[in-house]
Design a binder for these strands. Structure first.
Length: 947
RNA sequence: GCUCUGGUGGUGGAAUGGUAGACACGAGGGACUUAAAAUCCCUUGCCCGCAAGGGCGUGUGGGUUCAAGUCCCACCCGGAGUACCA
């Protein structure tokens, strides 16, 4: 019988769906049943549908999930949609279609495409971030973040209620908490403040807080963006310019968790490169904070340095243009110049600033600081190469040992003094240097009491001294910024926040909606664009005010009523909904809690997470933070959410080109005939009308009206196209749609081929060429079952079987699915050669192939007369004796030197090995008839004979 | 610049320090067929040779080892992340 995949696959997909084969219960056989949680990064359902790159990771995780299931694990393998996001809203603005409608359509299309590939997801657990039943818990978590602060002493999040009690008793005394700015006040002061003032103070500590902060404002998108959404001063989405602006925004105090985010990386099984990406993003650096006295004033300026050992080489100080001391430090003579510089620096766009990094600019304030260790007078400058957001926004400049300080000193003719030398006591004249000496190796020179010390020792000695003098201390700085959490958009989670006017006339005071009133549902709006007054789109919503007394959303017109207040108009960013979805899958239909304790106790955390590395500095940081916070609350059971993480490589497109002659617009020259690439224009051509880089010229003429009259210069009767690896995208005509391949070859072929393409982790271009080979293999495999019989298998056949079991098991364990497919091919070729159709051999192989080609396995399982589905079968065990090689090559040494390789039975003993070596003709030369003195035989390693 | 990756035939890629190039694609040749599809068989790293056989080969140069694609050092070239982060 033919291998009729187009009949088999839909039939089994229907069976699985109707019988709920992949439905998972939490602990259905008690807590003792081993459990395993395999998760994919859920997709954003875009209008373009899936291309072949998307399912790559899903196929890999599906194989692993099915494998674990066959091994007897209770496997949680869910899927859902990250459904809030900008593209749906942009589309809504352009077409007026409600994002909910387009999102629903896109989800349906995604589901259809996913179903065709035969995944074993438990769709009963599907979540969508835009579903009120889901975002209720996103909002709920936000309220918890709002109501907690981070205690640095306890190293965990604590309720702000505790803070209030503490402030009433002791004021800010002795508090070590993560905050926006250090505050100092007494209990009396606290108790004397009204509620608005107290709430303003508490805001300084909340983990979700509202503050004026410099944000990435994207005028084109009309919203602020998080740091990871901006690259090179342009928005990741759309590529619009982004500027730095001070705005009142909600933020998450993720910096409070910086150290724990670094430490946690030790506990997880991720690739080194991804861990490194996160470490770099968090950017921990150790150093010292030092106070420099300003000459003749009551001011001191605090700086941060990672090189305290170079303090003897400081020749000037630099403040960032935003620094609050500038005004008081500027002397009257310098006032005009400084003001001009500061306003110029502030008006520079982020893009300009980044593009002109090399350009040196700055201005002298006229004031001097005093070096605390030398009492030397040093000029204070202002320059935008010092950033407001990092450290204290002020530095001590050591031009000899910092390249940026060096460039600055050279530009303004400031002195340069060497204080570190590679060799002891060897100094040169820095005036002759062309670059600074930044390395942290060598010895201190010209450096008072640390002269002669190694750099590392000098660092410690200087910090000790500074601490003894009480002018500074050891400290750690992080590059990580708090995550800006509000977006001026419509299509996102509303904040469960309303504002009361403060009696003292200060800005409105935010209050949270009571938890019992969640979800606060996204209202309908008349327009998805910002309002005329520049408010976010939610400003258009009529039903968008909070009646505190009646605890419900009401019309805005009622705001003049006693207890009706305006609601927050921003919405949450994309990462809000994706930060905790893996926990919700554990108990997705629970409307009382985020997830039940019983569910999280059972599943713990994600055992295997598969997704792209492009989320390294976004989702994967936020989710870890989110989880750590929930862990502090006692809700999550593991501090790290994703135990093992595999990054699937991007599948790039392989674009094809035709070359149009520049002299003759109607002439297309075959690749091999082009003499000079400057004579032709390469044009993208649809990969569907190119086969194996050979253009179908007829279809090309029909493809576009402008090519209807095309003429070709052929080589050997063919038009050969050029090719290049590029991003898969519609505009390059290189998109491969999985549906087409499923229709042509079947889902099992697609699954196998995507795995066969290469290691899952590796980026690779899509190339359909090889799919035929994989399809041929499946047909060949299918044919093995035509002569199915119950004869006893030969030893040779059993050996093939057991070697295959071992190899496949090993391959799956190390996530090497491309070699698994090869193993199946070799196994099938060998069994075909042996004409083996024996049930005893083939039945276990069907189980082995089930994770890869589930439909075919299911059908063959059924044809063999087995009960139930193949996914209820048991993973076969291999017999080590049967799979062993008959002979193994051993290296034979004489006197410790390797002399020749020798084949011996794999099972051979010490005595047999020695006898065989002595008998070998090569040995005669080394033994010369003598008896060996000592023989060492390490199976599979080496035979060492000492004569 | 810094950090992390990777570099193996025409192509995708295999190789716990132990016969490099498995498996597949592509290419060439052949069988079956009126023909096509499908299927099957042979050849396919490079060089010398009619052959038997020999030589060279994992980016480059060194090193460790009986033995290196694999480990160590330096360099060259790609890819990714990050970037005035003091």
């Amino acid at each position: 019988m033919e291998y009729n995949f187009s009949e088999i696959e839909p039939r089994w997909q229907k069976y699985w769906r109707e019988h709920g084969v992949y439905h998972v219960e939490n602990a259905n056989e008690g807590l003792s049943r081993p459990h395993f949680y395999v998760l994919d990064m859920f997709p954003y359902p875009s209008g373009a549908g899936l291309h072949v790159g998307h399912p790559l990771g899903y196929i890999a995780s599906d194989i692993y999930a099915r494998y674990k299931r066959l091994q007897g694990y209770n496997v949680l393998h869910p899927m859902g949609y990250d459904a809030y996001g900008l593209p749906a809203e942009q589309y809504a603005i352009q077409t007026g279609q409600h994002p909910a409608v387009t999102t629903e359509m896109n989800i349906e299309r995604y589901r259809e495409q996913l179903d065709k590939i035969g995944f074993s997801f438990d769709w009963d657990r599907e979540v969508r971030t835009c579903d009120p039943k889901y975002y209720k818990w996103t909002q709920w978590t936000f309220i918890q973040l709002f109501n907690h602060y981070y205690d640095n002493t306890l190293r965990k999040a604590m309720p702000t209620a505790d803070l209030e009690k503490r402030f009433a008793e002791r004021g800010s005394e002795g508090l070590d908490a993560a905050c926006t700015e250090a505050l100092a006040f007494t209990a009396e002061e606290w108790n004397g403040w009204d509620e608005a003032k107290r709430r303003q103070v508490l805001m300084n500590y909340r983990l979700a807080y509202l503050a004026d902060i410099p944000v990435n404002w994207c005028a084109e998108l009309g919203t602020v963006l998080a740091n990871d959404e901006v690259v090179n001063g342009l928005s990741v989405r759309g590529g619009y310019p982004v500027e730095r602006r001070l705005m009142k925004q909600w933020s998450l105090r993720i910096t409070a968790y910086a150290q724990r985010l670094v430490d946690g990386l030790e506990q997880v099984d991720w690739t080194d490169s991804l861990k490194e990406i996160q470490r770099n993003w968090i950017g921990r650096s150790e150093g010292a904070a030092v106070n420099f006295r300003v000459e003749g004033g009551e001011w001191t300026m605090e700086i941060f340095t990672t090189r305290p050992d170079t303090i003897f080489g400081v020749t000037f100080m630099v403040l960032c243009p935003e620094h609050e001391l500038i005004e008081s430090l500027t002397t009257p003579e310098q006032k005009a110049e400084v003001e001009a510089y500061v306003s110029w620096a502030k008006n520079r766009s982020e893009r300009e600033r980044q593009a002109e990094v090399k350009r040196v600019s700055g201005v002298f304030t006229g004031s001097y600081a005093v070096n605390p260790l030398t009492e030397e007078k040093i000029p204070i400058w202002v320059s935008d190469y010092v950033l407001a957001g990092y450290g204290t926004g002020a530095i001590m400049a050591v031009p000899a040992h910092d390249s940026r300080d060096f460039a600055f000193a050279k530009h303004f003719g400031l002195p340069i003094r060497q204080v570190v030398s590679l060799e002891k006591d060897v100094v040169s004249d820095p005036a002759m240097w062309t670059e600074s000496m930044d390395s942290k190796t060598g010895y201190s020179v010209n450096s008072g009491f640390v002269t002669g010390m190694k750099v590392k020792e000098a660092m410690a000695a200087v910090i000790d001294k500074i601490e003894a003098l009480g002018i500074g201390h050891r400290t750690v700085n992080y590059r990580l910024r708090d995550a800006i959490f509000s977006r001026q958009r419509y299509w996102g989670e509303p904040f469960p926040i309303y504002y009361k006017e403060s009696k003292s006339g200060a800005s409105a005071v935010p209050y949270t909606i009571p938890e019992e009133c969640l979800p606060l549902e996204l209202p309908e709006v008349s327009d998805f664009k910002p309002t005329a007054t520049g408010e976010p789109p939610l400003g258009h919503a009529q039903q968008w005010a909070w009646d505190e007394a009646n605890r419900r959303v009401v019309d805005k017109d009622l705001i003049d009523n006693e207890t009706v207040y305006p609601l927050e108009l921003s919405t949450m960013p994309g990462f809000a909904g994706s930060s905790g979805y893996y926990l919700r899958y554990m108990d997705p239909r629970n409307d009382k809690e985020y997830f039940s304790e019983q569910a999280v106790d059972y599943w713990q955390n994600v055992d295997l997470y598969v997704g792209g590395a492009e989320h390294g500095t976004g989702h994967l940081i936020y989710a870890r933070f989110w989880n750590k916070f929930l862990f502090d609350l006692g809700l999550a059971k593991k501090e790290e959410p994703f135990q093992k993480l595999v990054n699937q490589g991007m599948i790039q497109g392989r674009s094809n080109f035709v070359y149009r002659s520049k002299q003759d617009n109607g002439l297309f020259v075959s690749k091999g005939l082009i003499k000079n690439m400057d004579d032709v224009t390469p044009i993208h051509v649809d990969i569907n009308i190119v086969d194996n880089d050979v253009l179908d010229v007829e279809r090309f003429r029909q493809w576009r009206p402008e090519f209807a009259e095309a003429r070709f210069e052929l080589e050997e009767g063919k038009y050969v196209c050029g090719w290049e690896v590029e991003k898969m995208s519609k505009s390059m005509f290189n998109v491969q749609n999985p549906d087409d391949l499923v229709a042509r070859y079947g889902a099992d072929t697609l699954r196998l081929y995507e795995m066969f393409l290469g290691p899952v982790e590796q980026a690779k271009p899509w190339d359909t060429k090889g799919i035929e080979g994989v399809h041929r293999f499946l047909k060949k495999f299918w044919r093995l079952f035509e002569g199915l019989n119950d004869d006893a298998p030969t030893k040779e056949e059993l050996k093939v079987l057991h070697q295959t079991i071992k190899k496949i098991t090993d391959d799956i364990e190390r996530f090497s699915f491309n070699t698994s497919v090869s193993t199946f091919m070799i196994c099938t070729n060998t069994l075909t050669e042996l004409k083996c159709g024996k049930r005893e051999v083939l039945k276990p192989i069907v189980v082995l192939i089930a994770p890869f080609a589930p439909h075919m396995a299911e059908e063959l399982w059924h044809q063999m007369g087995e009960e139930g589905t193949v996914c209820a079968a048991h993973w076969p065990q291999y017999d080590p004796q049967l799979m062993a090689e008959d002979t193994v090559k051993y290296p034979v040494q004489f006197n410790g030197k390797m002399r020749f390789m020798m084949e011996l039975p794999a099972s051979c003993t010490q005595e047999e090995a020695v006898a065989a070596v002595k008998a070998a003709p090569e040995s005669a030369k080394w033994l010369n008839g003598a008896e060996p003195k000592k023989v060492v035989f390490v199976p599979k390693k080496i035979i060492n004979i000492v004569v």
